[in-house]
Amino acid sequence: MTEPNPAESFASARVASGVLFFDTEGRILLVRPSYKPGWDLPGGYVEIGETPVQGAVREVQEELGIKPPIGALLVADWAPATGEGDKLLFVFDGGELAPEYRDRIELEAAEIAGYAFHDPELVDTLLIPRLARRVKAAIEARSQSATLYLEHGETYRGALPN
């Protein structure tokens, strides 16, 4: 008889990192991926051997052609998706994107069709619901100089379900 392998029951999540950048007017930077509809944060999946912040830096450089400083973690979101399995998504603070970086943005056409700064109040109309919740939580975390833990984009308040 073969002994069961306890590791088979461990979560094996995909990890992705995004960055929340602002302009001088407080609008957030969103990118329009060329491979899917709608808007998104700059970022993507973390590769083997990378930390989440290293993945964020690499993805921003690949998508936008710039390497601005990346700040503190704003949000960690446990958000499994049907058909995609377990996911752990991070959002880091990119702060106000300085003109020397904004002026040097060069899109990776194979991945990014466009970018624009948007009023944060429009995230519900621009982003899919789970991403909109995550971005709003990241904006809240930034305003509080905090890090928030989310589940499916909802702030976990410490109450376990029945």
Rank of each mutant, 00 (worst) to 15 (best):
G26E: 05
S34C: 03
R58E: 12
S34H: 01
A56L: 09
G26N: 11
G18T: 07
V57I: 15
E50S: 03
V19N: 09
L29D: 07
P6V: 14
V46D: 09
F21R: 02
I28R: 04
G43A: 06
P37V: 10
A7G: 01
E47G: 00
A56C: 05
P52G: 13
P33T: 07
V60M: 10
P6K: 04
V31R: 02
E3V: 09
E8L: 15
E59G: 00
G43Y: 01
P37D: 15
Q61P: 02
P52T: 13
R14I: 03
E8M: 10
L30Q: 09
E47I: 08
A16G: 14
D40M: 14
V46Q: 12
T51F: 02
V53T: 09
Y35S: 11
Q61E: 14
V53W: 13
S17A: 15
A7M: 10
P33N: 03
D40A: 13
D40V: 06
S12T: 13
Y45K: 06
F22L: 15
S17F: 12
P42C: 14
G44V: 00
P42E: 13
A13Y: 08
G55E: 09
G26Y: 00
V57N: 00
Y35T: 10
E25F: 06
E47T: 02
Q54P: 05
E59V: 02
R27Y: 02
L41F: 04
L41H: 01
G49W: 09
E8P: 00
T2V: 06
Q54G: 15
V57T: 04
V53G: 00
G43W: 01
W39Q: 10
A11F: 02
S12K: 06
E50L: 02
Y35W: 07
S17I: 11
S9L: 14
